[in-house]
Amino acid sequence: MSRFFIQRIIATLFSLFGATLIAFFASRLAPGDPIRLMMGDQNVSPQVVQRLQAQYGLDQPIPVQYVYFLRNALTGDFGTSYYYIGKPVLQVIAPGALVSLQWESVALVIAVALALIFGTLSAIRHNTWLDNAVMFVALSGISIPSFALATFLIVVFSLKLDLLPVAGLTTPAHYVLPCLTMAAQPAALLARLLRASMLEVINQEFIITARAKGLRETVVIVRHALKNAMLPTLTVLGIIVGRILAGAFLIETVFSIPGIGRIGVQAVIQRDYPVILAITVLLSVVFLLVTFIVDLMYGLLDPRIRYNS
């Protein structure tokens, strides 16, 4: 196992390096001089712009800039935001990361719970009206763009029914709409995949054997069928966490949630390079960690996969 760990860590570092490399060069290739954008529509002379470029090291060749970035990043120094004047990058993104972690985990829990319930139910009641109804709702969940669903929910639940607040994230009531909007798609995706693999598992000999041994149906389903059916969905779970992180910016924008996705999009729009790079590193680490954990679970659930082979 330890060799596997070392391999994974090296692989993770490699991917991180790759991601920052892409981010760095893409950000420098993207049109838009950050200094000009920093100045907004003020009339600033070219000399001032040049001086500022030198101060931010933007007059250096791009590879040199990249080496500076790596060197500083290794010490945890991501520099100062170009947008928030005088603010260290970590101060800009840390609160956002916490906020995203909070509401996105709630959304993930809801999504997984919904998927487990409805995916399993649908598989057990395969080809009944219940199955059809669940799958129809699940499909509808992935058929409406989240930003449209979000606006629709605001109009119905906040304005027409006057039940919930419109935007922000201050009270538990504020969590309801964004979490539901967020959970809809991953829940539908997971439920469908779970149903599919449950159906494959449920007709297996070992399930039939388990039933024949007289085990309770609940035990058969949860202990044997669900456990085995979860493996293929696990691969997807990692990706689903990725999708939640990736799709969050739409929902964070509509609901005015100060999360990392929204900060990231704004940073790209403002060409706030230091913030973009730090967010890339942060999100990459999260993705890679999740992938890592999923692989580990894969190994735990499937004894045939050995990591030292």
């Binding site: 892409i22 990725g242 999100l283």
Partner: peptide
Amino acid sequence: RVVDTMYAFPPFL
């Protein structure tokens, strides 16, 4: 590794 790198890169960015 290429897949992970591409995947790790936040897609919206």
